[in-house]
Simulated assay, not measured.
Amino acid sequence: MEVPLIDCDHRARTDPEVARDIDRALRDVGFMAVHNLGVTPERIREVFDTARRFFQSPEEEKLRCAYAEASENFGYQSLGQESLDPSSPADLKETFTMRNLLSSKVAVERWPDNDFRESVSTFFDDALAAAQRLQRLLALALKVSPEFFVERHNGENISLRLLYYPPVMASEIDPEQMGAGAHTDYGMLTLLFQDAVGGLQVQSETGSWHDVPPRPDAIVINSGDLLERWSNGRYRSTCHRVLPREQGVERYSIALFVDPDSDTRVEVLPSCIPEGAAALYPPVTAGEHVQAKIEATHGA
């Protein structure tokens, strides 16, 4: 099971060509790695530096920015505070989550500092622009208006997340414990920026797990639950996980979760229903789906 590599360079390739490649990747695997989507290497290096400074700071400083509740979905969580697979032991990762970053009303004192906030906000702008380009390409593939998906993602449920997987002793963890437990993502798309340390695995339709080789020069992108519903199962919301860091090397990654606004009614697109067939999924409100998933992983 290989994750396709797609070049989105608009100078060399037309949008219909790129849209066809994206369509094929999400149909076959549900994952792809993308070059030339518009986020510069310099911007990515800067936000990774910001993440490293934060996660390497003293625990008492990090806890000042602690995650309060799933309904807010903002702040720092230490090891063992989230279970992406609620049936398994808690995840061996630290996170800093920022939902609706540019419109957030979170108090100033709950941010690490102003430099942190400026760095992640600038990165968020660039990553969101990249996500919107993907949304327009998917609109082309699915035969809806160019702004169909962009208009339904105004930021209310779009979250930026910094992730840190510290080294752990194999003797100190449960055999079933993961860096990030097996799960599917909740919304439309996820953009994942990785360092050079591996650990991400995707699950095939037969249930076997396959490594996704780290490519710091590419963005790993996967379709989520709501895109699977919009596309009537055409695009897979593929289960994935992150292995614990037992080799003594820490791992960092940064994810942008592109989830629709809460009142968005997600129902199967007409272009995805074969003639004479019925939709495989009933309509669902995006907010209800996303919030239920977040609460399940936090036990609240």
Rank of each mutant, 00 (worst) to 15 (best):
V3W: 03
D9S: 02
R13Q: 05
A19V: 12
L26E: 04
A33W: 05
N36Y: 02
G38S: 10
V39P: 02
R45C: 10
R45A: 15
F55C: 06
Q56S: 08
E59K: 14
K62Y: 05
C65V: 00
E72F: 09
F74Y: 15
G75D: 06
G75V: 06
E82K: 09
L84N: 09
S88G: 02
K93N: 13
T95E: 04
T97P: 00
M98Q: 08
N100A: 14
L101P: 12
N114R: 14
D115F: 12
F116V: 10
E118S: 11
T122A: 14
F123T: 04
Q132R: 14
R136G: 00
L137E: 01
A139F: 04
S145T: 13
G155I: 10
R161L: 12
R161K: 15
Y165E: 05
Q177G: 11
G179Q: 01
A180R: 02
A182Y: 01
F193D: 09
G207T: 03
D211Q: 11
D211I: 08
V212W: 00
A218K: 04
V220D: 00
S223T: 15
D225F: 02
R229E: 03
R234Y: 08
Y235G: 00
C239L: 14
R245P: 02
V249Q: 14
I254C: 06
S262V: 03
A278G: 07
I294E: 07
G299M: 13
